[in-house]
Design a protein around this nucleic acid. Structure first.
Lengths: 231, 231
DNA sequence: TTACGATTTGTTGCATGCAAGAAATGCTAG
DNA sequence: CTAGCATTTCTTGCATGCAACAAATCGTAA
C-alpha cells in the first residue's frame, strides 16, 4: 500500500465511457424492455469490442438499478417494483425541494432566467394543446431547477434516481397529463415566484407540494398501466 | 436483443462480493488514506485472486466516489473537496429529514424503540464522559432512524452518501462533538418526541435543524483539521 | 400423453497475456 | 550543477481462453 501524490481530487472525475452511455440510453428510452436479456457476447459483437468493457458497463448499470445480473444465467433489464417507484417519488420530492431551496438562496443566476422562459414556452404549449412539447418542457423545468442548485453531489444522486424512473416516466407521462396540466403550469409559476423573491423555505415547500401532486397522479397512471400490461 | 422471462425483480438484488466490501471498508476506516495508490496487481496478490475481480471492485468504488481511476496511471484513494463535503451535508440533511418524516408516519415500529433505548444509553455515556461510546451511539442513532423509514431506495442513497463521508467523519467527529454534546443529546430527544407523537412535519423540521447544527460544527472542525494537516 | 433423466446449449466468472501510455529514472551534454 | 532527452519501469485497458453452472432441449420409458 505505497503512498503517492494525487490527493487533491480535481473538479470532476473522468467522463464515463460512451459505451456505458449508449447502453444506458437504450434502457431508459425503452429500446430494450424490462425482462430482455443483455448477453455480453451479443453486445460485444454489436458494439465491436470485447466482452471486458461490456462487462464493466453492465456492472455499473446493475449498481444503477437498471439491470439485474444473475450469475451464470444472464443480465436482464430490470423493472422497478411498485414499491420502489413509490420510494423513488419520495426521494424525488426531497431532491427537488432541496434544489429549489438552494436555488432560491443563489439569487440572480442564468438558470432562473431559463426557468422563466420555460414557463412562458409551456404556456404557449398549453394553449396550443401540444402535449408532447409540454411534456418535454416539464422535464426541462425540473432538470434546469436541479442544475441551478449548483451542487454536483445533488446532481449525481438526482441523475441516478431519474435514470431509474425514466422508463417509467415515458410510459406513464402521457396518461397522467390531461387533468393536471393547468395545475402543473400554475405550480411552476409559483415556484419561480418564490425563488425570485429569494424565499428558500417557501420555494422548497411549494416545490415539494408540486412534486407530490405530480407524483401521485403519475403513480396512479403507472398503476393503471401496470394492470393493463402486467409484468 | 432476444426476450426472456424474468421481469419481476425480486425483493433485493444479489449481495455484493465480499471483496468489494473489504476494499470499501479499508477506505472508509482509513486503513488506506487519501492519495494512496491501490494497484490492481498488488491487491490481486494480497487477496489471492486475479486482477479481474479486483478491477471490477475498484471500478465500483470509483462510481461510489471513493477512489479515482486515472487511466494508465493508477487508482488512488480519493479525498472529497471541501465543497463536496458541504454539498454532502446538505444531502444528509435532506435524507435524514425525509427519514424522520417517514418514520413519524409509521407509528409504533421496533426502530422507534431502538431509538429510545439509544438515547437512554447515550445519556449514560454522557454522564460517564465516555466520548467514544457516545460517538458510536450517535452514529447508531442516525443509522437506526434512516433504517426505520423503511425505504430501500432511501437507504441506498443514504449509504452511498455516508460512505463518502465516513473517513471525514472519523477524523473530525471526535473534535466537533465535545462542544455540542449536550445540545445533540437534547435534539435527539426532541426528534423522538416528534416521531412518537406522529407529527411528520415537526419530526422532519427538528431533524433537519439537528443535522444542520451538527454539520456546521463538523465542517468547522474539518476546516481547522485541514489547515493543520493540508491534504 | 406425461414424467423424468441425460445431454446440449448458453451464460457469466475468472485468469492471463499483451499492448499503450504515463511517469520516474538515469544518462549525457553543456 | 543543471537541463533535457532517452530509457526503463510501472500502471491500467482490452482481448481471449477456459471452467462452472443454469436452463432448455431432447430422448426415453411408463
Amino acid at each position: 500500500m505505497q503512498e503517492s501524490s494525487p490527493v487533491g481530487s480535481k473538479t470532476t472525475s473522468a467522463p464515463e465511457t460512451p459505451l456505458l452511455a449508449r447502453l444506458r440510453q437504450m434502457i431508459v428510452t425503452g429500446v430494450v424492455q424490462p425482462g430482455d436479456l443483455l448477453a455480453e457476447t451479443a453486445l460485444a459483437q454489436d458494439f465491436e469490442v470485447s466482452r471486458t468493457p461490456i462487462r464493466e458497463a453492465l456492472k455499473q448499470l446493475e449498481r444503477e438499478g437498471l439491470v439485474e445480473v444473475r450469475a451464470r444465467v444472464g443480465t436482464f433489464v430490470r423493472k422497478p417494483t411498485q414499491r420502489e417507484i413509490h420510494e423513488m417519488f419520495s426521494l424525488k420530492e426531497a431532491f427537488e425541494g432541496l434544489a429549489a431551496g438552494l436555488l432560491a438562496r443563489r439569487g440572480e443566476v442564468p438558470e432562473l432566467e431559463q426557468l422563466k422562459e420555460n414557463v412562458a414556452r409551456s404556456r404557449q404549449a398549453v394553449e396550443r394543446g401540444d402535449a408532447e412539447l409540454y411534456s418535454h418542457l416539464v422535464h426541462e423545468f425540473h432538470s434546469t431547477l436541479v442544475a441551478g442548485a449548483d451542487s454536483r453531489k445533488l446532481s449525481e444522486h438526482y441523475d441516478l434516481l431519474m435514470n431509474q424512473l425514466a422508463y417509467h416516466r415515458i410510459v406513464s407521462q402521457t396518461l397522467s397529463l390531461p387533468g393536471r396540466l393547468q395545475n402543473s403550469q400554475d405550480e411552476h409559476q409559483a415556484i419561480i415566484d418564490a425563488i425570485s423573491s429569494k424565499d428558500p423555505l417557501t420555494a422548497e415547500l411549494v416545490m415539494r407540494r408540486h412534486v407530490n401532486a405530480s407524483s401521485q397522479s403519475a403513480a396512479l397512471a403507472a398503476l393503471k398501466e401496470d394492470e393493463e400490461h402486467p409484468g
